[in-house]
Amino acid sequence: MSRVYSLYSTSVGKKFTMAVSGAIFVLFVIVHMFGNLKVYLGPEAFNHYAEGLRGFGEPFLGHEWFLWAFRAGLIAALLIHVLAAWQTSRQSWAARGHKYRKRDNLVFHYASRTMRWGGVALFLFIVYHILHLTTGTLHPDFVPGDAYHNFVTGFRSVPVVVIYSVAMIALGLHLYHGTWSAFQTMGVDGPRINRWREPIALGVALIVVLVNLSFPVAVYTGIIH
C-alpha cells in the first residue's frame, strides 16, 4: 500500500495512473466499436450480440454478473482517471499565477490542448449515451431488449446525430493525444518503438472515430434500417 501511496503522491505517479486507466478506456472503445459493427449484419445478429453481453460467462456466472463486474471496473477506472486529471490540472493552474500577455503555442499538436475541456465534454456525452441507448431514458422510442431497433431509431433524429458527431471529434482528439501520451508517461520509449507511437495513436483515433461515425451515416442514408 505504501508503494501505491508514494506512486500517487507525485504528479509523475498521478500521470501514470491516468495512463493506465486511460489505456483501459482505449481498449474499451476499440472493443465497443467492434461489437457495434455487428449492426451491419442485421437485427438478429446485433440483438444476439447485445443479449450475449448480458449473458457473458454463463453458466459459470449468473445472468449479467460479468456485465456488472465489467461496468464496475470501468467506473473505477473513470474515477481514477478523473481524480488524477483534476488534481494534476489544479497543480498546473496554480503553477502559473500570472499569465503571459502574449502567447505563442509551441505544442506538438492541437489535440493536447483539448484534453481538459474535451474530457469534460466526453464525460457529459457518456452520461447522455447511457441515458440514450442503455437505459432509454432520453430515447423517444425505446424498446427494452431490442437493441437494433433502439440503435436505428435513435439515429433518425438530426440533433442526436449532431451530438454524437461532436462527441466523436472530442473522442478522436482525446484518444490521439491520450494514446500517444500514455506511451510517454509509462516510459514506453526507445528508438524502435518511438517510430510507432504516433502512427498507433493516430490509427486508433481515426479508426474508432470513422467507424463510429459510420453508424449514424448508415442509418441516415438508409444503409441500415
Binding site: K14, K15, Q91, A94, A95, V107, S112, H177, S181
Partner: peptide, 16 residues
C-alpha cells in the same frame, strides 16, 4: 514537486 511547478501533460512545448 515541492517547488510549485506544474505537471507534465506531454504538450511538447518544452522541446520546441
Amino acid at each position: 514537486e515541492a517547488e510549485q511547478f506544474g505537471t507534465c501533460t506531454n504538450h511538447g512545448a518544452c522541446e520546441n
